[in-house]
């Protein structure tokens, strides 16, 4: 694994798995399991955002000089998802199944359309723009996400 477009999409899938497990637990009213799964999900999502914002985006911005374009939008969407994660945790604490389901549905579409943009457009652009740095950076991202 040596490209951004291999490492990060795999982590998206990993977060999807955690999301599906948390949502399923909430739907069956198992709030203990939902708490565990949601905890892992929120933690790994935040780690993913942090890794991108502190390692990948700055590298992309300095390699291309594009600081107001794609990465700015991705940061904004991270902010929107962070807000939804907060709402998800509050629905979890209140054991409010209906709100949890509504926020989860909103978060899922938000996440998926965000991932689609990253996987189809941004990551391939990163691989192209970062040149020789790609392998090192992909390794760092991988380590960061594994340790999180």
């Amino acid at each position: 694994m040596s490209h951004i477009s291999e490492i990060l999409p795999a982590h998206h899938k990993h977060c999807d798995e955690l999301f599906a497990a948390a949502e399923e637990a909430a739907q069956s009213g198992d709030w203990v399991a939902c708490g565990e799964q949601s905890g892992r999900f929120v933690h790994d999502m935040l780690a993913h955002f942090d890794a991108e914002e502190s390692l990948l985006f700055p590298a992309f911005e300095s390699a291309t000089g594009m600081s107001g374009g794609p990465t700015q939008i991705m940061r904004m969407e991270h902010g929107q998802m962070r807000e939804l994660l907060v709402q998800l945790e509050s629905a979890l604490r209140a054991k409010d199944e209906e709100t949890f389901a509504g926020v989860a549905e909103t978060l899922l579409i938000m996440m998926q359309q965000h991932n689609m943009k990253e996987e189809n457009i941004l990551y391939p652009m990163c691989d192209q723009a970062l040149g020789a740095q790609v392998e090192r950076l992909a390794g760092e991202l991988n380590t960061r996400l594994e340790q999180a």
Binding site: Q87, T99, A101, G102, E105, T106, I109
Partner: peptide, 21 residues
């Protein structure tokens, strides 16, 4: 989803926009 997306981008909201459901 478009409803939600456009509403939460209004900025400076005091109340959260309704979720998708």
């Amino acid at each position: 989803f478009l409803n939600w997306l456009h509403l939460q981008r209004l900025g400076g909201l005091k109340v959260l926009p309704p979720n998708i459901k």
